[in-house]
């Protein structure tokens, strides 16, 4: 089988030479991964990150942007490893959204 992320040689349009300044949240996701994979922590390998991204499936892979894929994979890996639970994740996410709502008021 050929998986959707394995795209070398496939047809595609012109390379749009886009770039953007990475936003703080994107850098924080990058930082989470570096901290989890560093020699001190060794909680998660780059290949676990990659596997988690590949396993998002073709729909999410194309729909999510780069760091959305990363945080999705990191989160799934941390749940699988028992480092965090779905329930506490959900609670913290609701709190984060509520805090953001307050800043918008």
């Amino acid at each position: 089988m050929r998986r959707h992320h394995d795209m070398g040689g496939l047809d595609a349009g012109p390379v749009e030479q886009t770039e953007h300044d990475y936003s703080p949240w994107e850098k924080r996701v990058d930082a989470i991964m570096r901290l989890l994979s560093d020699e001190k922590c060794q909680l998660m390998s780059v290949d676990e990150l990659r596997r988690g991204i590949e396993n998002l499936g073709p729909g999410a892979y194309d729909e999510y942007n780069y760091y959305e894929r990363w945080i999705s994979s990191i989160t799934n890996n941390l749940i699988e490893k028992g480092v965090i639970t779905v329930d506490e994740l959900g609670t913290k996410m609701e709190e984060a959204k509520a805090r953001w709502q307050e800043t918008q008021a």
Partner: peptide
Amino acid sequence: NPEELAYGRPG
């Protein structure tokens, strides 16, 4: 081996 590392094994 990345094929093992990816699944939390030592490789």
